[in-house]
Nucleic acid binder design. Structure first.
Lengths: 240, 240
DNA sequence: TGTTAATGTGTGATAAGTACATAATTGCTA
DNA sequence: TAGCAATTATGTACTTATCACACATTAACA
């Protein structure tokens, strides 16, 4: 939708002058993964001179012809090749000086993906999975954004069945507990954990056992539902 | 901060062309108040032809030289004269077709104010307090924004001591309970409610009683803390 | 066949949530 | 000034969730 086409004259005077249109909008994605009992986050080497050597979140500017919600899906698709992902909007950051190149307001999303489903694109561009516990400093205000998203993830993870997006289709209760512990940063009691999870009713007993583990094998489960929030495709102008 | 001044040449090529700068950003405020046992929301008659007769949230475009977080405080100050208010960012809405005048992305905030502190400005411009339970249709996508903010308020109100921003300085437990009931839309048991509130430790017993009530007077309390989130004043360019 | 590393399971103690009733105080009204 | 209306103040029994904690079992491996 071109702006000029849809503007009424009165509105033109009010909002079309450059004062209101020299702010850019971006999205930044905190992409969480899980590997070797550690919560990971996918980062990219900053391409700005100011932040040489620092890592930053994956983000991009919004295109004028895409919904805000579609942008983080596009970023994820471009960077990881995945498009069936869980994404949740967390917060919008708009401090005046947050971007050295000008006025950029950014909306932060977090995403949970199964780290095994995208290996390919890692060696190209400077993408890398970092352990969440190692994150000290990031480019821009991305540390603040990252912290907020991690906080939100921790709030959500016991309330909604989103955690399964970080796991393979079949998993044992031990794997699930390890993952919760990695996210929440605490140790949980096994018996109490199992009771709690059982009460949620999120799991499907598939009557299979772990194979080739060097100890007594555990039962395997599937998630009853894998929550995704895919963008609803809409044409511009469509009435909702 | 003028954009052109701080842009590096490489960046200029990448982001300064108009494609990325013809999106406007606004804030919209869901301003809650409380009166006569009802939760209220402050609305304004829409000034757009498309939404003639409909009410809309109070909002405005972001100025290029103000922090995002400062904008809703400015809107509140301009509309209600109050600047010591509680504000919380809720969500950013950016569907392509959400604004008939062009591409406008908006960040929604909710605010809690004591309805008695601002009477003056109501008769001027077309501002009016509406009962939350009467809200059916609003201009733009404001009904969706309103719903999301009300939902967030309901999530927050038992967890954080924010509710006192809707009450006068001194209040009785009955007034507090009525207010909770208005927000949550449920009836609460008095004894259990009192126990719960007592456990939170939010109240200060000021050893005063209600006066001139047509029934046995109750004790009055103050909030130990009144949570406000005032914007932190920062100069552009200041390192955080 | 013993060692290692896990699985699977239950109970008692404490805290939180829920349902519920009676006596006391004030202003108002007849 | 007696009685009514409205609301305060308060506790207990029941249920549910949370927490700490120990032992027998299974499979791989050396």
């Amino acid at each position: 939708m071109a702006l000029s086409k849809s503007l009424k004259t009165a509105e033109l005077e009010k909002i079309s002058h450059l004062d209101y249109f020299n702010i850019a909008i971006s999205v930044d994605c905190v992409i969480f993964g899980y590997d070797k009992k550690e919560l990971k986050v996918l980062l990219i080497k900053s391409d700005l001179e100011e932040f040489k050597g620092l890592w930053s979140l994956l983000g991009d500017f919004i295109n004028p012809d895409e919904d805000l919600e579609s942008a983080p899906y596009r970023v994820l698709k471009e960077r990881t090749g995945m498009d069936d992902v869980y994404l949740e909007q967390v917060y919008t950051f708009g401090d005046l000086d947050r971007h050295p190149s000008g006025r950029v307001i950014t909306t932060a999303y977090y995403s949970l993906i199964d780290i095994r489903h995208h290996q390919l694109k890692l060696t190209h561009n400077e993408l890398h999975w970092h352990s969440v516990s190692d994150i000290r400093q990031l480019a821009f205000d991305h540390k603040k954004i990252f912290d907020r998203c991690l906080e939100r993830l921790r709030e959500q993870v016991m309330e909604h069945p989103i955690i399964f997006n970080l796991l393979p289709e079949k998993f044992s209760l031990r794997e699930l507990q390890d993952l919760y512990q990695a996210i929440l940063g605490v140790k949980l009691d096994r018996r109490n954990f199992r009771k709690k999870i059982a009460n949620k009713g999120w799991l499907l007993d598939i009557d299979e056992m772990e194979m080739d583990v060097p100890h007594r094998p555990g039962k395997l489960y599937k998630a009853k539902i894998r929550l995704k929030k895919k963008p609803i495709k809409k044409k511009a102008g469509q009435v909702v």
